[in-house]
Amino acid sequence: MDPSELKKERIVRRAAQELKDGFYVNLGIGMPTLVANYIPPGMDVILQSENGVLGVGPYPEKGREDADLINAGKETITVLPGASFFSSADSFAMVRGGHVDLTILGGMEVDQEGNLANWMIPGKMVKGMGGAMDLVAGAKRVVVTMLHTSKDGASKVLRKCALPLTGRKVVNTIITDLAVLEVTPQGLRLAERAPGVTVDEILKATEAELLVDEVVEMPV
C-alpha cells in the first residue's frame, strides 16, 4: 500500500473506534464511508444514509446492483434485515432532531473552536453542501477525519478557518494521520499521537494552538 493509503487506513481504523454498540451513525462520502469496513464484529451499529435509508449493508455482489438502492454518495448498496426507507424530510428530521448519535465526515479545514469548512473553495466551482450542514448541526457527535496537512504541507488544523464554514462550533473530535484532537471548552486538546509520530512533529504540523498534557499513542 502506498504511504497516503496507509495514512488513510490509519485514520479510518481510528475513526471506527468512535463507534459504540447501539449507535445510529451517518458516514460521509469518501474516507468516512470506509469506516463501515471496520465495525467490530458483534457490535450493533445502524448506518443511516441521508437519501433515505436506515440499515445500510455492504455493497452488492457483482450483478446484484439495484438502481433504486443507493447511498448518499450515489453508490449502489444493499440493506440489512430490519432496514427502513423514508423520505428526505423524515431523513433530516432524524439528522436535525438529534436522533443520529454520530456523524463522521471529511474536512478541508477545522479550527480550534470546532468550526468546520468542507464544502466550498471560493473561486472554484461550487458543487453544493449536500447534507453536510444539516449533519454537523444536528448529529449528537461530529467527528472529522482528514489528513493533517494539505499536499503542500500546510496545516489543515487552524486557529481560524479561512474557507466558508459548513458549521460553527460543531466539531467534537478531529482524527488525522498524525493525531486525535478533542475540541474542549478550554481549547483544542492533543489527545493522541499516531504511532511513530512525536508531539513536536504534531505541533510543527499544526497552526492551531494545542493544549498538551497527557498524550497517549493512537491505539491502531
Binding site: 469496513n37 455493497y59 452488492p60 457483482k62 446492483e65 443507493i70 453508490e75 449502489t76 448498496i77
Partner: peptide, 17 residues
Amino acid sequence: PKRIEKRTNRPAGGAGA
C-alpha cells in the same frame, strides 16, 4: 434499464461499505 451513477460492488468474498 435504470441508470446507475456509481456502480459499486463488494470485493469477491469480502464486505464493503
